[in-house]
Design a protein around this nucleic acid. Structure first.
Ligand SMILES: [Zn+2]
Ligand SMILES: [Zn+2]
Ligand SMILES: [Zn+2]
Ligand SMILES: [Zn+2]
Lengths: 126, 126
DNA sequence: AATATACTGCAACGTTGTTGCATTAACAAA
DNA sequence: TTTGTTAATGCAACAACGTTGCAGTATATT
């Protein structure tokens, strides 16, 4: 399907992802824009933006859904196999550009992988 | 705290993990034993078994909580940094003994990591 | 057997996310 | 600009997974 119309919600959410260079959770966006948009709308716009290859999603440490901007993805090809880092202190989540070398697994066909690294981020690192 | 009393629930659940060599989701156990045990009890026993170093937990592809037997863990030291494999066809989840080499991340302190590999398992692999 | 308390079941609740449907707004054609 | 099509939205209700409080029960110790 894909995002077709340039609505207020799409504009505002996209602007948020452009402004902040980090990943943002759906929960966070819903809280931030609760006076402007309904949570259902936010979930649906995020879905569409992911289908379109504008955002990619992954699960954070508590199973919450996070989104971040894609680099070089399209609706037909998603390239989001990079690891993510979540700070256990401030909760911030970043995309890591470093690639992961997956272990060898006999007799199995690997399709996707998600690596979530947790620890202390540069800001919280004392 | 730890598991102290050998109750029926503990016995049955532990037996289940010993019988099957794979990871089991809380959801699965609740469904399987819904006539025998209350879901609250199952959640609590799993919690305790994890605290005791008998089981370790991780999140599967949908954010569901999975448990598997620990090898060489204790209440004081948990050694569950191995990756897991989830079959996209049959849903089965295994612990992988292979270790993962984490990417270098400057200015951050790594505490935990969870790697979930998804694909087709040996049984479903045609 | 009596006691202390860990464990259990139940009901009610919390959070994240989804669905159905009526209304509104975006876009294009007239 | 006006009109018409239909995607997008808001709302309420729901669904799934998991948690909490509390009263009653079972375990282990004396
Ligand atoms: Zn931080
Ligand atoms: Zn990312
Ligand atoms: Zn399989
Ligand atoms: Zn494991």
């Amino acid at each position: 399907m894909g995002v077709i119309r340039k609505t207020k919600t799409v504009e505002v959410l996209l602007n948020e992802f452009n402004k902040r260079a980090v990943a943002i959770s759906a929960k966070n966006l819903i809280k931030q824009f609760q006076t402007s948009f309904n949570k259902t709308t936010i979930y649906r716009v995020l879905d569409k933006l992911e289908e379109d290859g504008v955002l990619h999603s992954f699960l954070g440490k508590d199973g919450l859904k996070w989104y971040a901007k894609c680099k070089g993805c399209s609706a037909s090809e998603h390239n989001d196999l990079h690891p993510h880092f979540q700070c256990l202190n401030c909760g911030k989540v970043d995309c890591l550009s470093e690639s992961v070398k997956l272990p060898e697994i006999p007799n199995r066909k690997i399709k996707v992988s998600q690596l979530l690294i947790q620890g202390t981020c540069d800001t919280c690192y004392l």
